[in-house]
Amino acid sequence: MTSDYMVFGLLFLFQTGFGVLGNTFLLGLHTITFFTGTRLRPIDLLLSHLAFANDLVLLSKGVPQTMTALGLNNFLDDVGCKLVFYFHRVARGLSLNTTCLLSGFQAITLCSGSFRWEGIKGKIPKYIVPFCFLCWTFRLLTYCVILLKVKGSIGMKNITEMNDLIYCSAPTGISSNVAEYVFLFSLPDVLYVGIMMGSSGYMVFFLYQHNQRVQHIHCNSLRPCSFPEIRATRTILLLVSMFVSFYSLNSILTLYMLLGKLTSWLVHISVLLAACFPACSPFVLIVSDSQVSRYSLALWDRIKLPVQ
């Protein structure tokens, strides 16, 4: 095993470990807070769903990739390779869907000063769970093709290396099927990214207007804007910016590899880029979302009470 692969292995281990730790903390905090009777914000359900999807992304991608980079090859059979690759793709799609829902939800929250949008804002919490189930259904069905085409590398002959999972393989020619990749996987994702960018553009415009009126702190309507909404908006904008940046870089690199420029170190870099958002996003929320601190303090107070 070369020193380069050892470095990649340690990077994957560090990225996966800290990312899973942060996402699990957020998911556990929101779950415990809910069961202790504290009222959660509607957006907290989306944040919990995002944390769960990010955990699944990191575990399904980071653990096998770490093992491969550290020299453990051919550790997955055909069924294991199908399931790992399938659930990674599903989880990554869910992360995209949830981030898109977060940006749309926050954009509607900001423009709820008008009577028309106020009514829509009041109905949104009722549709969050159905939207999440719809996202799961869409992603599970979309990526069923992976269960048919991805193969384990154990005992396979005349195979080509898979584009982004070097421990799995696919029948010869699948890696060059750019049209299938673009139309089946990329176009829906581009649509979601477009929605994110549109809602984010509106929020940036709103924040610019807000800064112009910062002495009075009033929206276009008569309803005063609350500082928590402004802080939440900036947090969502930061998450969306991170997602779009890492997703764009990874997509460009993936397309480059699909065109036949595939090397093992490019595969590892692609994996690192794909896992950057799931690993970093929980810490962005922990640091910038004041409600996370309130939930943590409230939970800590409940834990201390029985001891006292």
Rank of each mutant, 00 (worst) to 15 (best):
T31C: 08
A91M: 04
L273P: 01
T38G: 13
W300I: 11
F246H: 02
P228T: 09
K304T: 10
Y86D: 03
N211T: 09
Y86S: 06
I32Y: 02
L13V: 09
G93Q: 00
I230S: 04
Q15S: 10
F133M: 11
S245K: 05
L239G: 06
L134W: 10
S60R: 03
V240A: 05
F131D: 00
V84P: 00
L237W: 08
L70F: 14
L187R: 04
T68S: 13
Y143R: 02
L29M: 15
V57I: 07
F14S: 11
F138P: 01
L184S: 03
R294S: 14
L13G: 08
S153H: 00
R139M: 13
F25L: 15
G17M: 08
C168P: 03
N73R: 15
V63P: 03
F85M: 05
H30D: 07
G119D: 06
L148V: 11
P278C: 05
C132E: 10
I146H: 02
R223W: 05
T99P: 06
H210E: 05
L148K: 07
S48G: 12
G122Q: 06
P171Q: 06
W300T: 12
C132L: 14
S248E: 09
F277H: 05
M242S: 15
L110E: 07
K121G: 01
R92Y: 11
L238K: 09
C81L: 05
L110S: 07
S226T: 13
F227W: 12
V190Q: 08
S169H: 01
L238V: 10
L184P: 03
F105A: 05
I159M: 13
L272I: 15
G113N: 07
Y143M: 03
C100L: 09
P130H: 08
N73I: 08
F87T: 04
W300L: 15
G104E: 02
V178G: 07
F138T: 13
G71Q: 07
V267D: 06
Y192L: 15
T254D: 07
P228V: 06
Y247S: 12
F138A: 03
M162N: 15
I159F: 14
F283V: 03
M162W: 12
Y295C: 07
L258S: 14
F87M: 04
G155A: 10
R234K: 15
G62A: 04
G122S: 09
C280P: 04
V129C: 10
T16H: 08
P64R: 01
L253T: 03
E229L: 15
S153L: 04
Q106V: 11
N54G: 13
S95H: 06
L21D: 00
